[in-house]
Amino acid sequence: MKNIATSVDAATTKSRATQILGFVVLFGVLALILLGFFAAPEDDEQRDAVRMIFVHVPSAFLTYAAFSVTAAGSLMWLWKRSRWWDIVAHSAAEIGVIFCGLTLFTGSVWGRPTWNTYWDWGDVRLVTTLILFLMMVGYLALRAAGGEENAVATRAAVVGLLAAVNIPIINRSVEWWANRTLHQRSSLTDGNLEDLTLFTLVVGIVVWVLFFVWAMIHRFRIGWLEHQLRDIELQAAIAGRRAETANDPTGGSLP
């Protein structure tokens, strides 16, 4: 603690790598705006509304990615009891909820001009995505409810795996219910895209993934610090109890 002056100065969760990554993401977003609004062509049917794809699809992609990481972390916690994986699962869930919310929001905003509706209760993909979102909000609520650290991790891991059942259903729904859904099939795997549209979409996904990595690193470090802090508080509490018993003339024994 002797270098407290310098450590306060450097007291952040950033490192050289995340700083560089952060700048890359910023430039990536600028490039995506330019590409998405000015370079990519408009669509025959949808006109300019198609430009929503560059934020909607990357968000959906990251929803799958983040919640899959949560599922993997949950599984690893139950198997290895590793704090590292527990924090990874929690971090990915928090970021995933944001992207899942954005997927639903951008999808609705895109749906109004193209489908003529913000929301349709009959569509499997829309409804299952909403269910996944609500379950993961529950996951975060369960985490926030607190309790003994290991017990919280175990509970959360079970909910994380329960929610992960939705991921393959959402992803496959447009194939399983082919010709029975409002939502179109995958644009990336079996769509027919203009070259520049496809390129911009890939740029969007890369930028979103880089942001995810940046956020994961920072969020993981926060989780790590919270874990350390609980440790420090516990040590202080134990030391406090020791001091109390030392001053106690009975030596701390029960009457």
Partner: peptide, 16 residues
Amino acid sequence: IAFRGRVLSRQVPADK
């Protein structure tokens, strides 16, 4: 998260 990282970092010694 950047802000929260700062707040938490101040409370944890550098070697942690």
